[in-house]
Simulated assay, not measured.
Amino acid sequence: MRQIILDTETTGLEPSQGHRIIEFAGLEMVNRKLTGRSLHLYIHPERDIDPDAERVHGISLDFLADKPRFAAVGPEIADFLRDTELIIHNAPFDVGFLNAEFERLGIERIDTLCANVIDTLVMARDQFPGKRNSLDALCDRFEIDRSNRTLHGALIDCELLGEVYLWMTRGQNSLVMDIDLDVGGGADLGALEFERKPITILRPNAEELTAHAAYLDELDKAVKGTCLWRSLETPPPAEPQA
């Protein structure tokens, strides 16, 4: 299944108050590898941008003056997302804005347009309860370089989130998961017997034994007695039984 790592920037916090998307970014991933296909758009919101929001992402209305309205790019975004699994940090925020924008255009909602939504914030809270789980905090936890992230931006946040998602989902693979076992339907895998190959033992040659003995002699001199290794090699005689 295609996965899309997705992020948006907006004019404010609440689509119910008429706030709009001003930046959309999505990176395509297949089999845990980025394909190089992406969609990145700046969008004129047809309204003012809240000063608090602008301080976060640094996108001004002047910058967006010549950018397309959502009505012009909404169908392209919907086609890019169709039948995919979305990977989003704090998914309700971005999904809420996309649903509001799509509804204005008569486009189906995310829950029917896409196959699934993975919220990496929920995943992080499950894996690291009681800890900070912002994107910045997760990058620091996984030692992901975020030096280029001076402001929030949809595209760079997608790139960072992709790395965070791979770290959180890499896990421990089964030691036998790649073995093709033709055991027939209903076979009890726990009853399978695997052949153990004999352990190869490499014994020292005469030159190596001589060098080892010389090394132990030096240890004896250093401890002014018998070094521990010699006592292990030559255990003391057993006590006579009464």
Rank of each mutant, 00 (worst) to 15 (best):
M1H: 08
R2E: 09
R2G: 02
Q3T: 06
Q3H: 09
E9R: 03
E9P: 00
T10N: 04
T11G: 02
T11N: 03
G12A: 07
L13K: 03
P15S: 10
P15V: 08
I22C: 03
G26H: 02
L27F: 06
M29Y: 05
R32A: 15
L34W: 04
G36Y: 07
S38K: 10
L39Y: 03
L39F: 04
Y42F: 14
Y42A: 02
R47Q: 11
I49S: 01
D50N: 14
P51Q: 10
H57L: 06
G58E: 11
I59G: 01
S60K: 09
L61H: 06
F63E: 09
K67C: 15
K67H: 11
P68Y: 13
E76C: 07
A78R: 02
D79T: 15
D79I: 07
D83V: 04
D83R: 13
D83T: 15
T84N: 03
H89N: 03
N90R: 05
P92Y: 06
V95N: 01
E103Q: 10
G106N: 10
I107L: 12
R109Q: 10
T112W: 14
T112F: 11
L113K: 02
L113P: 00
C114R: 01
C114Q: 02
A115F: 11
N116F: 13
I118P: 00
D119A: 03
D119K: 01
L121F: 05
A124C: 04
R125C: 00
D126P: 00
P129I: 02
G130S: 04
K131T: 00
L135F: 03
D136M: 07
D136R: 11
D140V: 12
R141Q: 04
F142W: 05
F142P: 00
I144F: 04
I144W: 03
T150N: 14
T150F: 12
T150Q: 14
L151M: 11
I156C: 05
E159L: 11
L161K: 00
Y165H: 08
L166R: 08
W167R: 09
G171T: 14
G171I: 15
N173G: 15
N173S: 12
L175F: 12
I179A: 13
I179Q: 15
I179R: 13
L181E: 10
V183T: 09
V183N: 09
G186C: 06
G186S: 08
A187C: 08
A187E: 07
L189A: 12
R196I: 07
R196M: 15
P198V: 11
P198M: 13
P198K: 07
T200H: 10
P204M: 12
A206K: 15
H212D: 09
A213I: 11
L219T: 01
D220C: 13
K221P: 00
A222R: 14
K224S: 12
G225T: 09
L228P: 00
S231T: 14
S231C: 13
S231K: 15
E233S: 14
P235M: 08
P237A: 12
P237H: 10
E239H: 08
Q241E: 14
A242G: 14
